[in-house]
């Protein structure tokens, strides 16, 4: 990365600022990616790519147009999607929850059992809804933050959420319904 001359045009200030951002978000972003891969080494690789991309584009990032958090999460989401798509499954896959059982994918075995209890509910949700669930329950982000990351405003999220309610209540099992109610639908 640096070999490609990425230090060019960066100032002390940029490096200091990016260092602060890195310290603040590295764990959150890594965790977010881990929740979508369930594999430490893969999560580390994808986190490295995410922050390298962020550093490459840091000069172009305009904080007036969006928060750092939303920017980093967007890069991380896209990086994960690219990663899964590059694996060329026969079906469309955006994160590990989309996988059918029996796929030969490396995962950390100690978390498999733990995740099994919620897998069936997660699988019933769209990738976007799963992200909301992950960000809300496991990362404890507010609706406002989630909406920002996903490029929506809070009010429109709530409206979309309410419109989906009556339909979901009938169609989904209670667990998935609750997950949806709690975390909303922004798709």
């Amino acid at each position: 990365m640096q070999e490609n001359g990425l230090t060019e045009g960066f100032s002390d200030k940029d490096a200091l600022k990016f260092g602060e951002i890195y310290d603040q978000y590295i764990k959150k972003i890594y965790n977010f990616i881990y929740y979508k891969t369930h594999h430490k080494e893969s999560a580390e690789d994808l986190t490295s790519i995410t922050f390298s991309k962020a550093w490459e584009n840091f000069k172009n990032f305009d904080q007036n147009k969006g928060s750092v958090s939303a920017w980093l999460y967007k890069i991380a989401r896209n990086t994960v999607i690219d990663y899964w798509r590059a694996k060329k499954f026969e079906y469309d896959i955006e994160d590990i929850w989309d996988l059918s059982s029996g796929e030969d994918i490396k995962v950390d075995t100690e978390n498999v059992l733990k995740l099994e209890s919620v897998r069936k509910y997660m699988k019933n949700l769209s990738s976007g809804d799963r992200d909301i669930l992950i960000m809300r329950v496991w990362q404890e982000l507010s609706y406002k933050e989630i909406a920002e990351i996903l490029g929506k405003n809070e009010a429109s999220c709530k409206m979309a959420f309410c419109r989906a309610l009556s339909r979901l209540k009938k169609e989904m099992p209670l667990a998935a319904f609750i997950a949806f109610m709690v975390f909303g639908s922004l798709d």
């Binding site: 999560a43 950390d108 209890s117 919620v118 496991w138 997950a179």
Partner: peptide
């Protein structure tokens, strides 16, 4: 059910 989701949070190492 909510606790089930909370408990299922994996250790990210």
């Amino acid at each position: 059910i909510i606790e089930k989701f909370v408990l299922a949070k994996p250790d990210t190492k």
